[in-house]
Design a protein around this nucleic acid. Structure first.
Lengths: 182, 182
DNA sequence: CTTACCATGTAAGGCGTTACATGATTCA
DNA sequence: TGAATCATGTAACGCCTTACATGGTAAG
């Protein structure tokens, strides 16, 4: 059994919650999944077609509008495939922190330059933190009626914890570098 | 000016600290850079040759042994290239957390299965945390004599903060899932 | 009417992993 | 002497991003 292609699984996972268009899938990637997964249209649409070919998903074209709109649903086989993957151990988590890279080699350009990278990082994280905190609030309310969102909430909490850690670290790092900034 | 290939920059960065063989570079990737960058031999060796071709690095073959051993150094041009990249804003940090993915779709297989993933994650992080904590201790001692390691220490502290956040989250997540585990 | 958003897709090309292939040296 | 580690490299292949190409619809 070859290694499952991750994008297959992500899309199947999203379709296991609700039927979606490729466009909507992309939006999920850019909001809900943003801080732990990503994908571009150039990979989403071909994958979707492939999933249909393999009978893991079905597509329905909306003929009521002139606009081309295709809604995808997961099949029983697709759900089976997803469950199987979900039961396997995690192979690897992959991070590629360009920010940390620039930091690591920072003594080549000095503290001032490095501080800029940290400040930019901090700014970006603060913005995303706001979104996460809001998601948490909404989800905690919804949870009381509908427990299926528990897993979603768990990932939001993960984001909040790690983002808070980033922010703490930023403060510490800024202090360390400002000391010898002059 | 096209986007810089990251592996070029990572390797150049490592060479800016000291001269290294491809094998040693791989080891750095697997230890020091492990929690924010990675690469395989299949990409390291070709990149190294390419760097030499572009005069960003030079190689010296050790002829005193039968074993093939090639040590690479950064050139002035290479250092210039590295500095230039270091001054540019970070384009993107990329994370692909398979663990979070499996979690997000957890209600398809239930809390017991999901708890297993969390426990495995926790175990892995605890192991790496030990390594980081030790690095921190060593680096803090060294820092008193040699401030060039400050940037290295900064990345270690980043790792510690985020790993601690992961660990906190694991506890919280386990509690949330165990509640409805039976 | 024009901007933003909805919506789908392809082609080229880059980047990187896995698997394979080979051999030296060190240490128990 | 066998295992672990040092050491370099290639080939096949997969996956994904970027850029391009196209057009509908809604809201101001």
């Amino acid at each position: 059994m070859a290694t499952e292609k991750k994008l297959d699984c992500v899309i199947l996972g999203l379709l296991s919650h609700e039927q979606l268009t490729g466009y909507e899938i992309k939006k999920r990637m850019d909001t809900t999944l943003k801080y732990f997964w990503g994908a571009s249209y150039g990979s989403i649409y071909p994958t979707l077609n492939d999933l249909v070919k393999r009978d893991l998903a079905t597509k329905v074209e909306d003929k009521t509008t002139n606009r081309k709109k295709i809604t995808y649903s997961i099949t029983d086989e697709g759900r089976e495939y997803l469950r199987n993957w979900l039961k396997l151990s995690v192979e690897k988590d992959e991070l590629r922190y360009e920010t940390l890279l620039k930091l690591f080699f920072g003594n080549e350009v000095g503290p001032k330059q490095t501080l800029l990278h940290i400040k930019e990082f901090q700014f970006k994280i603060e913005g995303e933190m706001e979104y996460l905190l809001n998601s948490e609030k909404v989800l905690e309310k919804v949870l009381k009626m509908d427990s299926t969102h528990k897993y979603y909430l768990l990932t939001v909490k993960f984001g909040i914890q790690t983002y808070q850690a980033y922010l703490n670290w930023c403060k510490e790092a800024v202090m360390m570098l400002e000391k010898d900034g002059e």
